[in-house]
């Protein structure tokens, strides 16, 4: 089976400045693929390359096995796109705009737009210029979904959506994936990707750091334990304990990373006066920060 998205050594430079460098990844049908990275990492560049809005400097990029340059129109007819920086026709109403989009996609009326608008409680008759940021984002989402696309390219999709609408959006994504359709979701919000994606690619400064299943990332992750002591324990108090690493020390507060059984750590802690103890499962955010800290120390 061909991958829905296949990038090979994909590189894009804007003159001298870096877009993305040597990207290689595949996205399979029926998954939500999270594309995670800080602003300026190259997420939008990657999506715009897929739509032939910009052209790669080198490397190959195929969607549905089609060349994104030579077969761009065919690619775009099967793809729905929500830009990160959404610009709409201010004078049109959402209904007029969605009808235009549907017409250019060869659909009658609004396609699925009417039902989607109802679901998102989007008012169709007020001019777009009078809409709030959240409502504009809804217009963007509806236009991306209205032709029942095989692939959705969503660039920071939940920006400006209130929690209830995000809930609707999450449900919609789940349905899309259940139908075997595919979602490529870019975000700088780690918890969002963690919640929605099956696999995640982390991009930094134009290069892929890693591509992994969200579950694997979680398994790799650790429990973060933060203990506040009455008097700071000696430096070597937790050295050599199985599965325990000391991450940080701020006066009486010691932050530890724990993998595996908590027992040795609890027994070690019990020797000192512990005023407070906080622990939670490290989320992608912790992982992400750890990755970045590592990158930084490598560079130094």
């Amino acid at each position: 089976m061909t991958a829905v998205i296949r990038a090979e050594s994909l590189t894009k430079f804007y003159g001298e400045s870096r877009g993305v460098v040597d990207l290689g990844f595949e996205v399979e049908a029926g998954e939500v693929f999270g594309f995670l990275g800080p602003n300026g990492a190259g997420k939008t560049t990657t999506i715009r390359l897929m739509l032939d809005l910009i052209r790669p400097s080198s490397g190959r990029l195929k969607l549905f096995g089609l060349d994104v340059r030579k077969q761009s129109v065919a690619v775009r007819s099967r793809t729905g796109y929500l830009p990160g920086d959404l610009h709409l026709y201010e004078r049109l109403t959402p209904r007029e705009y969605l009808r235009y989009v549907a017409a250019l996609r060869g659909l009658d009326g609004l396609g699925d737009g009417e039902a989607l608008a109802e679901r998102f409680e989007l008012e169709l008759e007020r001019p777009i210029r009078a809409l709030s940021k959240g409502n504009r984002q809804k217009v963007g989402l509806v236009q991306a979904f209205l032709h029942h696309p095989d692939l959705l390219l969503l660039d920071e999709p939940t920006a400006g959506l209130d929690p209830l609408v995000q809930q609707t959006f999450n449900e919609l994504l789940r349905e899309v994936v259940t139908e075997g359709r595919t979602v490529f979701l870019s975000s700088h919000i780690l918890s969002e990707v963690q919640r929605l994606a099956d696999r995640v690619a982390i991009i930094r400064e134009g290069s892929l750091e890693l591509v992994e299943a969200v579950e694997t990332l979680r398994a790799r992750a650790f429990v973060r334990v933060e203990a506040t002591f009455g008097t700071p324990p000696p430096q070597e108090a937790f050295a050599g304990l199985p599965g325990v690493r000391e991450l940080e020390r701020r006066g009486p507060v010691v932050v530890l990373a724990l993998e595996g059984s908590a027992d040795p750590l609890i027994k070690a802690l019990a020797r000192y006066e512990v005023l407070a103890l906080d622990s939670h499962e490290a989320d992608l955010e912790d992982f992400f920060l750890a990755l970045y800290r590592k990158g930084k120390s490598d560079a130094e």
Binding site: L51, L53, H87, L88, R105, G106
Partner: peptide, 14 residues
């Protein structure tokens, strides 16, 4: 310049 061309050319229009 208004930024609407991106969405227009994301549609199947050459």
């Amino acid at each position: 310049e208004r930024g609407t061309l991106d969405l227009l050319l994301s549609l199947p229009v050459s």
